[in-house]
Design a protein around this nucleic acid. Structure first.
Ligand SMILES: [Mn+2]
Ligand SMILES: [Mn+2]
Ligand SMILES: [Mn+2]
Ligand SMILES: [Mn+2]
Lengths: 218, 218
DNA sequence: ACAAATATTTAGTTTTGTCTAAATTTTAAT
DNA sequence: ATTAAAATTTAGACAAAACTAAATATTTGT
């Protein structure tokens, strides 16, 4: 597998999750930042190699073999992201570009030992699940913080309200994207929440909670 | 710089240290495991880019700019080797192939933070010096253990006698390639040595010491 | 149902890095 | 000083991955 083939396979995997299953040439071209004609050429090659199922004008889906490859690349990508954040002090939003390169390094032992070195993480810094060696992983869902049941834990992955006052509030309360948040308790009276973030308990209003997105595993 | 260009530059750097300075087309071809005609093509391109000095039939040398690039690749290669051994439990002889890939990852921050994560190592697992960010590094020399002055430290990089009995002896005494060895003292009488290896003091005969190579910095 | 718009594929080039075979230059041997 | 051997370069070709422009196929709007 060349680097380029791997990127195509990974993109087809990500796009293929948008229901319908079959992925269009143009959508791949957009994600790859290339031209549709180049995509057609590559799809033909991937099809000949048995990585995708393809019928002219009908879009493309991953074969079983292609899915296996896709998952192994996603696994590597997310493990490297964890490494960059946990070990090299990268922040949440700096890791993607580098992981995009590191995911192509070929060495089974490297991936295994990296996994071990990181303590077999289940999710990456963006809250996305990391496939196991044989391609299994738990689904994750994105929910507003105020809709998360008590006792659940998730990673802060986005805001609904992105106005400066709200962002400033988050900053002042030391809540940042990428933080792990545990829902400790919810007040019946006003819907406000007790949450635990970086081992510190804080209390936030329903208004705040309804503007923060959490990604939850399972 | 493409991956291939970087490999050529690195090889020209390594071959260029064998006196004479100028590197032959055939020697590059041998190291790259490619044909001399392919080397000529690449040399022309590198020459146009100002990375090497080249005159037809006269061999090639790195330009100042080319040397800078070469040192940055060597730096990355050796830092990754340290990472693999120190953090991922790779052994001495398993790291090269993987480092050969990792050295091409492009991210200044990655290299800086990796360096920090590793505690700013000065030498790689093979005892070779790691260039600093601005390309400086100490020279290293390979010497027989019995010729190393008292108080010096080095990394065990090879054997002169590779017969099974000798290798078995090393194994039994827990001396392995890649180990750091400190010369504690030398007995005048028989030339035997007191050395420290993995914090353990051991006593070895001159005969042993004259069959082990150490790589010493500076 | 049909024309217009959109999506996709084909045809023909380009760039990068490689190859083989042939030509040229340098080096080594008599 | 020639000649033979070895090293190097040139010429011509190929595969991978991209592009542009043109040709088809599919969808959509009326
Ligand atoms: Mn990638
Ligand atoms: Mn991620
Ligand atoms: Mn390399
Ligand atoms: Mn090394």
């Amino acid at each position: 597998m060349t680097l380029s083939e791997e990127d195509y396979i990974k993109i087809i995997y990500h796009l293929g999750k948008g229901e319908s299953g079959s992925v269009s040439t143009n959508s791949i071209a957009a994600r790859m930042e290339t031209k549709p004609s180049s995509v057609t050429d590559m799809i033909k090659k991937l099809s000949e190699k048995g990585l995708v199922n393809y019928k002219k004008y009908q879009g493309v889906t991953l074969s079983e073999y292609g899915l296996k490859i896709a998952l192994s690349i996603v696994r590597k990508h997310r493990l490297w992201e964890v490494f960059l954040v946990e070990k090299l002090e990268f922040s949440w939003d700096e890791v993607h570009e580098v992981a995009e390169q590191l995911e192509h390094i070929k060495s089974e032992k490297l991936v295994d030992m990296l996994d071990k070195h990181l303590g077999y993480p289940q999710i990456d810094p963006h809250g996305d699940p990391i496939p196991s060696k044989n391609g299994e992983f738990k689904k994750s869902i994105k929910r507003l913080l105020n809709e998360v049941p008590i006792g659940k834990e998730g990673i802060c992955v986005g805001v609904k309200d992105s106005s400066p006052p709200f962002l400033k509030f988050l900053d002042k309360n030391n809540i940042a994207l990428g933080d792990t948040i545990l829902i400790v308790d919810k007040e019946e009276f006003d819907g406000s929440l007790h949450i635990k973030i970086r081992d510190i308990d804080i209390h936030i209003s329903d208004q705040i909670a309804s503007n923060l997105y959490l990604r939850i595993i399972e």
